[in-house]
Amino acid sequence: MTTTAAKPTAVTAPVDHAAGKSRVELKNVSRGFGEDWAREEVVRNLTFEIKPGDLTCIVGPSGCGKSTIVNMVAGYDHPDSGEILLNGQKVVGPAKDRMVVFQETALMPWQTTFDNVVFGPRLRHEGSRPEIEKEAHRLLEKVGLGEFKQKYPSQLSGGMQRRAELARALINRPLLLIMDEPFRGLDAMSRPLMQEFFLRLFEENRRTNLFVTSEIEEAIFLADRLVVLSNRPAQVRAVIEIPLPRPRQFHMMSSPEVFEIKRQALEILHDEAMKSFGGAAHFAHRGPAEHEARA
């Protein structure tokens, strides 16, 4: 299968030494919500590592606490116990070294695409105005939005909004890029295109990446490692290495290797999904095998 995703255009980029060298560690992270008497644990004793230059995918049944993990790594939320380390330093709050690309677009609707991209560096007064603008132009060309710089986010398609958001994140040269189900809600045509585009972007400099998704196929196609989570409270059920070579191609997805990985992951996920089904589980007779046949 061949696709014609817009390739990131080769424009000489300033050397970004930070990219691909950052390590993130989660150590015994737990988080719950609610009052003592009705406390619900959302994340329990979570320990895993994101290796430098790796794309680590978190997969888990919906509602299992993936977004809570993202919020804690990004610094919007804090663990009740345990710690999150970025290059050995404890994460305390949101900062430009951990950029988040959100589920729904979080581009400021009142700013043009260009103003959105320069927003961060401009506020932090990093570098001169022409420097910032030059870099923004370069990134926007790279993500294929050269002609849409002066448009407002509402005038862009879903895929374009995602790419604009990538540009807005990348201009800050983060140590870690966090993507929280970024391609959810895109239509069946633009989703694979975005996945391939994003892969090329990642493979260019391998910026350490934490990618959250509920789509197992997407996870295998993109990731170096899968962290499979349990049902709420989220715990690590399995860590699966994806041995596929890079650059990744769509045809790799039909190899027996991938089939086996998918089977393993689905078996765990199915197990967990059944638990969240609770009392209604006995109505759903479908075993993992049937699940797989549909996937």
């Binding site: 919007y76 949101p94 900062a95 988040v100 959100f102 979080a106 400021m108 927003f119 932090r124 800050n172």
Partner: peptide, 9 residues
Amino acid sequence: YFRAAGCLG
């Protein structure tokens, strides 16, 4: 939007 502004510094 508040979150985005937060991580953009």
